[in-house]
């Protein structure tokens, strides 16, 4: 099989790292070669954060080149637009409908672009989810990343059991049930 290239983007602190790690572990359990590239340190402090997950028979580079991403998972609208050009023309974007103003917008130096969802949908196949709303309905806004992961799962592959197995082993023990619910809610789009 050709390598599958996944890119997870968002704002530092949104949980993008955990999401990529769960994808990576699930791919490993399925017997694939896997590489993940992460961002630590200063960039994590509210900055634009990018992680890559690649899996297949043999993976060399831990990052993915522009135009080579199969699945782009964006935790925030502006970040979806920022990295959309990494996505293949026939790739799919899963975008969490959330707006976080960067400091350049807060200070008035720049304007937050309008109609991002229209723009990205016109360029690539796009799935929009209101992850925070779903997470809040479940009673914990922190499970946002499981919701987003659930929504992305069918474009990545693997069975529901495989996903839930890794999720169970990765999230804090007290939050296993709610994270499972969040994953399923994201997967079923509710």
């Amino acid at each position: 099989m050709k390598n599958l290239n996944i890119m997870v983007v968002g704002v530092g602190g949104q949980g993008t790292l955990l999401t990529s790690r769960i994808i990576g572990k699930t791919a490993l359990n399925d017997g694939f070669d896997v590489k993940l590239s992460e961002v630590h340190g200063m960039a994590q402090r509210g900055g634009s954060v990018v992680t890559f997950v690649r899996f297949g028979e043999k993976v060399f580079e831990p990052v993915v080149e522009e135009g080579d991403v199969d699945v782009l998972i964006a935790f925030e609208r502006l970040e979806a637009l920022r990295y959309l050009h990494y996505l293949k023309k026939d790739g799919v974007l899963i975008v969490n409908d959330c707006r976080i103003d960067p400091m350049t917008v807060v200070t008035g130096v720049a304007k937050y672009p309008e109609n991002i969802l229209d723009e990205v949908s016109s360029k690539r196949k796009t799935v929009v989810i209101d992850g925070l709303d779903i997470a809040k309905k479940l009673g914990n806004s922190k499970v946002l990343n499981s919701v987003v992961l659930g929504a992305s799962a069918k474009y990545i592959g693997f069975s529901e059991d495989e996903w839930l197995d890794v999720l169970t082993k990765t999230v804090p023990p007290k939050t296993i049930d709610i994270n499972k619910q969040a994953f399923l809610a994201g997967k079923n789009g509710k």
Partner: peptide, 15 residues
């Protein structure tokens, strides 16, 4: 990379 969007930068900030 013809379709790279021009968007506001998001540098790291104090939490």
């Amino acid at each position: 990379c013809e379709d790279r969007a021009t968007v506001p930068a998001r540098p790291p900030i104090l939490c």
